[in-house]
């Protein structure tokens, strides 16, 4: 049994396996299918200051080895999270990390402040990369200056571990990564979904109500893996890798490319307890190769 513990800033995870925002609800949805407390952490669904209805249906299109979504950050707002959800989550024996979104600097800051008041939430993940909202979101995440501005503002009000989630829909992800690091981010998570599109040829119409949406699932893995590897060489802060992970082998590849921890997203829909198999698989891999601590794997790629 290897030591699976890893640290992300001040946050300690019992193992490097977590679940991705927007794919795991508030965690409790999965409690019927698995022991969610075995996870290193749960990134709960995107939360904004005010409630959002999200985009109209249809919001989903299946693709080869993946899917497009256009949920558009539907959620009941930070206050609802505080009053109705937090009390149910705060006793869980795993890290609950809130994914924070906004449409302006002020709304990011106000939402982060509300979450900062919740003692049992050890970290937030700043979503500056959602492709599914018209205003804001990705607008901040696609330029180094925009990313710097929002990270700087949130850093001022958020004392705990600040993870910044990056968009792959950029020319050079390392530029954005460096900007977030310079403004005090404790960690980076990447990647969010890739902008894509699906058409119904018979109807000559787009399948998604928003025409374009975010691509995720196994089909994006080579891209996310490449971006993790590039970013690992550009920054010093720990990276949380995600994008298409569906089994322990994928997870180990991300660790080798430089990730300190990983998130499992879309694959939870296919196999709700896949994340637990990934924990067991990483452990077995470590044992097989005589690795005492999983943190030794981070960036251990040999080129």
């Amino acid at each position: 049994m290897a030591d699976l513990r890893v640290n992300i800033g001040k946050l300690s995870l019992k193992n490097p396996v977590t679940t991705a925002s927007g794919t795991f609800g508030y965690g409790t949805e999965y409690a019927d299918f698995m022991d969610i407390e075995r996870l290193g952490g749960i990134f709960v669904k995107g939360t904004t200051l005010e409630a959002r209805e999200g985009n109209p249906y249809p919001r989903m299109a299946e693709t080869p080895a993946g899917m497009l979504n256009a949920v558009g950050l539907q959620n009941k707002g930070a206050e609802y999270f505080t009053d109705a959800i937090y009390p149910k989550l705060k006793e869980l024996d795993t890290n609950i990390i809130v994914n924070v979104s906004g449409s302006s600097i002020d709304s990011y800051v106000a939402c982060a402040e509300k979450i900062a008041a919740l003692g049992k939430i050890p970290a937030i993940e700043l979503n500056i990369s959602c492709p599914n909202v018209k205003k804001g979101g990705m607008a901040f995440g696609v330029s180094a200056a925009g990313a710097a501005e929002v990270v700087r503002a949130v850093r001022k009000v958020y004392p705990r571990t600040l993870i910044v989630k990056l968009s792959p829909n950029v020319t050079d992800i390392t530029e954005i990564a460096k900007a977030a690091e310079a403004e005090g981010a404790d960690s980076l998570s990447l990647i969010n979904t890739l902008l894509g599109m699906a058409i119904d040829a018979g109807k000559r119409k787009p399948i998604l109500s928003t025409v374009t949406g975010g691509l995720s699932g196994p089909c994006v893995k080579p891209i996310s893996l490449r971006m993790v590897w590039q970013t690992y060489q550009a920054v010093k802060i720990p990276i949380i890798g995600l994008g298409g992970i569906s089994n322990w082998r994928d997870a180990v590849e991300f660790l080798l490319a430089g990730a300190a921890a990983i998130q499992i997203g879309t694959y939870n829909f296919i196999d709700p307890s896949a994340s637990l198999d990934v924990i067991d698989g990483i452990n077995a891999y470590c044992d097989e190769y005589g690795i005492k601590s999983v943190s030794e794997l981070s960036g251990a790629l040999e080129i």
């Binding site: 609800g25 949805e29 209805e53 919001r59 939870n268 829909f269």
Partner: peptide, 22 residues
Amino acid sequence: ENTMACGIGACLCCVENTTQGH
């Protein structure tokens, strides 16, 4: 019969617009 991804209330892909919102 809205199209679904997770089927367990986690992804919010299958929403219907109702008197109580999505």
